[in-house]
Amino acid sequence: MGLLSTQFENSNVVITSVEGVLNWARLCSLWQMSFGLACCAIEMMAASASHNDIMRFGVLPRPSPRQCDVMIVAGTVTLKMASRVKRLYEQMAEPRYVVSMGSCSNCGGPYWEHGYHVLKGVDRVVPVDVYVPGCPPRPEALLEGWMRLQEKVRNFSLVKSETTTD
């Protein structure tokens, strides 16, 4: 009944690569860790709500890091929280991704100079795949970041070594 039924008369055979189908399955079901650290979390919740409905990309918020693929660091990472964020990241199963949402978790944001208690960028404790700028970013910006992450997953190769960007 789907799109493919018009293209194949009898057989249900589709030819693709293993990588292609695995990556397609993964990028369409990136489960997110449900935690927020500050006001960015409100925009993250707005992205989940009906207007933006991030769930149409297969994003399910999960309460346990062991069931998650993506950690959205939404908000100010204090030094006290940083060790917890790192531990949560380590509890996630590979392959795992991190989206840094908002200025605070990108680089410290407004606390960059006088924030004695703020980690100046979550990339000092965990590797970040996508940075979403904004203070806070609108839900559209988070969706854009999400699609960048999906592109990254789509281009993941089981056989070729990943090219490092830095």
């Binding site: 030094l79 004695y116 000092r124």
Partner: peptide
């Protein structure tokens, strides 16, 4: 105690660099 006027931000906290 960080709100003391003479407080100086530490260089590192638990191995994490603190200043920008």
């Amino acid at each position: 105690h960080p709100l003391r006027k003479n407080y100086e931000v530490p260089e590192f906290y638990n191995g994490m660099k603190v200043p920008y």
